[in-house]
Design a protein around this nucleic acid. Structure first.
Lengths: 217, 217
DNA sequence: GTCTATAACTTGATAGAC
DNA sequence: GTCTATCAAGTTATAGAC
């Protein structure tokens, strides 16, 4: 169990870390194999191409995270008993799994979360993978949020989710962003505090009064 | 004035567009010169290196945008006469120049805004350029927001700006993101409407009650 | 499954003629 | 300022031995 990981896993782990750290395009397979201590041909044997390696890296983590999101959503809807759960709880169900993975896991998880934050911007590569993995999740959360906020038009709600995803991805990327904005004055706290801050911020945004006039049919 | 642009400008324009469309790393200089219709050596003559070309692309647009941000901020502070201006106005001063560049300019501006959205994620390359261009702006806006929201601790305010920048960058990137989230059901409106929605969303976030306990000194 | 060797190509950068 | 020609190094990917 704790023995040295096999070749395939070592490649996945290393690629995950390097893609997260430097981005997909600038990370060559040779850098990956050098750090993973495997042979170049092994990458092509196990993953066929660099692009497919990226997809393998993504699906390995995305599936559990999205499953947990839906589970947390279902749980908080159950606890609310009939009524729609509070917006904070819905947002927590969406955000917490990703943040925990990002900041709590000992090894690979942290890198992956940064990678996802990156890919939201560098995603030319994997449209259908994202669509398959995240599409149903986004639909489920849009529906939950719509029930919690019936006064917000569906279209506006999509936009608010879009803004929220941007804030989340930016935060998950977790590079020197905040130190930069705050000019170094702002220490990075534990992930629970960051998550708490983000949920408070976004909840208020979702509950904001709607001022944009609805387009007539 | 409307004559064919000179070599240097053509390179800048083309690089801006391609960097925005595909990212910095995957865009080779040869793709740039092919579309710009210039010689490869001209790039190195005018810009020395690919990295310096990117910096030139960034500074050309960032400087005017940031100047306009500070002007709008100063104007709305003047109009508020002594009192701090409303949060919406401060946010508008920060967001509107970037959005107008993104969605109104006929040619290059739109590409640049997408590029900036991208670089917020792919920015390993240009830390000091961003620092020089955006540092003072962020400081000014943090200070303005602090005066408008004295009950929000400075540290929390930095985080909220961080979230807001993430949402802005994500929105400016403006790829198929929303169509993706909404599964194609959500048409992309004009930029003023998007800006209005974003300001409403972020204003509420900035004004949210502070729940995270302040750390003791 | 893992290796070596190498094909086939692209990259950023430069030297030097004009 | 702009060109051609080219370098040196990097890239993904594959063929074939073990």
């Amino acid at each position: 169990m704790r023995a040295a990981a096999d070749t395939k896993t070592r490649i996945l782990d290393t690629a995950e870390r390097l893609f997260a750290e430097h981005g997909y395009a600038p990370t060559s397979l040779r850098k990956v194999i050098a750090e993973a201590g495997v042979n170049l041909a092994a990458v092509h044997y196990h993953f066929h191409s660099k692009q497919d390696l990226l997809e393998a890296v993504v699906v390995r983590r995305a599936a559990p995270v999205n499953r947990e999101r839906l589970e947390m959503l279902a749980r908080c809807e159950r606890e609310a008993g009939g009524k729609p759960p509070p917006v904070e709880k819905i947002l927590e169900a969406f955000l917490a799994p990703a943040f925990r993975l990002a900041r709590e896991c000992t090894e690979g998880g942290a890198a992956f979360a940064r990678l996802m934050g990156r890919l939201h911007a560098e995603n030319d590569a994997l449209p259908r993978i994202l669509k398959n993995n995240f599409g149903p999740v986004l639909t489920a959360f849009h529906s939950a949020l719509h029930r919690a906020l019936p006064e917000v038009p569906k279209e506006e709600l999509f936009w608010r989710m879009y803004f929220a995803v941007g804030a989340m991805a930016h935060t998950l990327r977790g590079d020197q962003g905040l130190e930069f904005i705050s000019n170094g004055a702002c220490p990075t706290p534990d992930w629970q505090t960051t998550l708490r801050r983000l949920i408070d911020f976004l909840s208020a945004g979702f509950c904001a009064p709607v001022k944009v006039r609805r387009k007539r049919k």
